[in-house]
Amino acid sequence: MKLPTADTINHHRTPGGPNGRHETDAPRHIGIWKFSKNAEPAKEFIRYLLGRPETYNEYIMSGDAFNLPAYDKLQDHPVLKTDAKYAALKSEGVQYHAYGWPAPPSDKVQLITNSFILPIMLAKAVTGTSTKDAMAWAEGEMKKIIAG
């Protein structure tokens, strides 16, 4: 059932700044345990799912763009034409960065993400703390984590 709210909401891209637009996403990985008894069939399944364009396309189409990876080459994927509201996702892959960019991904970056430092910075800025102080707080917290 389509709710009335659906007509009044939409997707939007992360706002751009003076240094361009920078977006991130939660990358998903598929792995096989070293101790797996069925490593070969598992590899075969991954090759089947991700290695053949027709299977992979079906996988993305059946997920209604939810499974669309942020790859440059997939920014014109047919799934984005299935709903007008997917238009905002079109160039998503171009400015995509992993968490912590330009630093390499690490447990420190993960701690910064999981500690919600950026959302808290924004929450501070809209609940009485000046924007400058909120940014200085977030910078300080991140520096402490990176130094540790």
Binding site: N114, K124, T127
Partner: peptide, 23 residues
């Protein structure tokens, strides 16, 4: 534990740092 860590207790913060982050 939110908003802004205002309700975090030792157990919830320990879970966030120890299990979600792996430290």
């Amino acid at each position: 534990g939110g908003p802004m860590n205002s309700t975090h207790l030792f157990a919830t913060l320990a879970r966030q740092v120890g299990l979600e982050t792996g430290r």
